[in-house]
Nucleic acid binder design. Structure first.
Lengths: 161, 161
DNA sequence: GTAGGTGCAAACCTTTTGCAGCATG
DNA sequence: CATGCTGCAAAAGGTTTGCACCTAC
């Protein structure tokens, strides 16, 4: 069990991030290997929602023999430490996103084009807290996913039909 | 693509439900087979959150040769029609729940014991609508899952440590 | 009679694991 | 130099699919 990060939520530059992750892991007795450095760089160097497979491909462009297992194992460490967050988009695979330096947000997934939109509403979080308190549930995290059609796809449907 | 049901959300008795599903599917050109009748009966006759495998077992107690494929295929039809809803509980498998005759609600999943608690808050839905409207997104459905520790497990942890 | 549905088994896809060898601290 | 990490390949879930046979309409 890796303790979760608690670093300022403001903007963080890539080199800083790399360093934060490195020292966080080192302090907890993890080794900082070539592969981990690469995986962390690729995972935090993007703002999209990637799958483990995506990440593997990106890493292999630079180091062709990085193994799938290492990517999964590193993602698990990063997720537990709170540097990335995994989200099931519904339909088997999970996607991951960069958390460090990004504010918490929820997702709207367009069922037509698959694009993911992020949004945030503090009131939503507050209501959840209230609902949880009512039954004595202690929240660790939550995942709110709204499925529907994005503006562009609605327009395309109207135009195309 | 099966059109979604739109039936009164109030309490519905099992025999009524069976009949509603049957006529809904028939009207849309689906055949009402022995297997479907059984699967529907088992799926709607429970109020828990079952996996496809659970459902298969239950069906096989009555008709031992129902195939896994048929259960999956029927669940897909029922889900698309809106009689059951699938939810990823995080960690591979999905679970399904009875929707017909049940009010919409969200879920809290205890990460210790795995139990699922249902709750509902109209304000939550309203805020989501507002957030969606802001970016022109049309909501089809949403899934809010709160992960954490339930009251009983919190007590057990305190007692056990 | 003819779609559509079913059962079986194999295929699939994503993720996890066992193990021998390697590299970090 | 001890242990943790890596790569490989196989295993493990959960779900889907191809196909020949069956059955509801």
């Amino acid at each position: 069990m890796v303790a979760a990060v608690r670093y300022p939520a403001g903007p963080v530059r890539p080199e800083q991030e790399q360093h934060i992750v490195e020292s966080h892991l080192r302090q907890r007795g993890f080794r900082w290997t070539t592969q981990r450095a690469l995986i962390v760089r690729m995972a935090l160097g993007t703002h999209d929602h990637f799958t483990a497979e995506n990440l593997l491909e990106r890493c292999r462009k630079i180091a062709p023999k990085v193994s799938r297992a290492t990517v999964y194992r590193t993602l698990a460490v990063l997720e537990e430490a709170g540097f990335v967050a995994g989200l099931d988009t519904g339909g088997g695979g999970r996607r991951f996103e960069h958390v460090l330096g990004h504010e918490h947000h929820d997702h709207m997934v367009c069922t037509v084009c698959g694009r993911i939109f992020e949004f945030r509403d503090g009131e939503l979080e507050r209501r959840q807290e209230i609902a949880a308190r009512r039954i004595g549930f202690r929240i660790e995290r939550h995942s709110l996913r709204i499925h529907g059609t994005c503006r562009a796809c609605q327009r395309a449907q109207r135009g195309g039909t």
